[in-house]
Design a protein around this nucleic acid. Structure first.
Lengths: 202, 202
DNA sequence: GCAAATTAATGATTTATTCAAG
DNA sequence: CTTGAATAAATCATTAATTTGC
């Protein structure tokens, strides 16, 4: 007999959770979870972990849904652009013959790309960074002027063909939270701006 | 039709570029740009300058996004600090007069809500639609099987450990009450106010 | 209509990544 | 470089929704 029944949110609970989510709440901290749980328990059996998991999952799947939407749109765009402009792959391949040190990967279709583990193959030869490197890279980040100057003269054939004398192909590596969630969080005025002096985490 | 059509990255190209970026690549030098361009041209029309500009823009906008995120987090932090206040729920309800379709969202905790005696169990059997969250009307009264399993079920995971006192919010999620319409809501002090005032994730 | 079979949705866990303090 | 905290991503597992043959 199933001793392990998973939480089944009541409609009221679900409504409230979604309302909170719509209001901008994404990853509530323990105290807030506790509060929410206490109040949701008025409408049915619930535990703190249920609330925690709900927000985890809802956020993740929301993002996932958005990503898929983007993909579909991009695919459409791709098809349109291909219709407009016939392919010129050969031209580019001739122009830039492979001297690749990149692994000859780039699977044929992106559908077959492993969603998560694939990154390793792109990262060969790349090092992770320390904070020092972050600062360094920030300091030497290229200005737009340079870009424009490159652009102005034959779109920078110079920096394409020219020297690799400056450095080798060592990539500048920084690892900020390039975790660019593409989710445009619309943060409504969910909670009253309290006059409390304590700026407290969720 | 514009004779000067700008580069429109295909999904594959975009994915690979983002993969490289995620791997730490920020300002590729010319030879590397050449290699990348050669590979990306397998998936669509592309030039070296496109790769160059993509990294330029992506880096800049990523940094910008991070800044905005920080600001939003700070704002939300302030707004959400209400939870330290004991009577914050009333504030919360005041903040949402528009949610009249719901029962009092966070009713005053220490008042007994109309103890709709078995309402919790009553709602357990309700089913909901997936997409639009419309309530179905068929109310299926449910046995108390779920109720029994609630209290008896061990939390199962060691990460819900009443003894531990770390600040991991997952570990500190403890359901205040299970299957009890009257919620005492004793906020345990297991939830240390996070010490870090520097950065707070949302 | 109705269950068995199948599929989709989603709750719950596990694993990996990021950030930064020591 | 190592480690801990936080959390995002991926995965497992169960429930609901839907399909299907009768």
């Amino acid at each position: 007999m199933a001793r392990t029944t998973r939480w089944c949110p009541t409609p009221e609970q679900l409504m409230i959770l979604e309302e909170l989510y719509r209001g901008g709440l994404r990853t509530p901290k323990a105290p807030l979870i506790q509060d929410i749980t206490a109040h949701l328990s008025l409408y049915g059996k619930i535990e703190g972990k249920n609330v925690f998991y709900w927000f985890q999952n809802h956020k993740a799947r929301d993002k996932q849904k958005l990503r898929r939407k983007m993909m579909r749109m991009q695919l459409l765009q791709q098809r349109l652009s291909f219709q407009q402009q016939p392919l010129s792959f050969q031209q580019y391949n001739q122009q830039f013959p492979h001297q690749s040190f990149l692994p000859p990967l780039f699977p044929p279709t992106f559908h077959q790309l492993p969603s998560h583990g694939s990154s390793a193959m792109f990262h060969q030869g790349m090092r992770r960074t320390t904070r020092d490197n972050i600062l360094k890279v920030n300091l030497i980040s290229q200005s737009n002027e340079v870009a424009e100057s490159c652009m102005s003269k034959s779109y920078g054939r110079d920096w394409i063909d020219n020297n690799n004398n400056n450095t080798n192909n060592m990539c500048n590596i920084i690892s900020p939270s390039c975790n660019n969630n593409r989710v445009p969080l619309k943060t409504l005025d969910l909670f009253p701006t309290t006059s409390s002096s304590s700026h407290q985490a969720l």
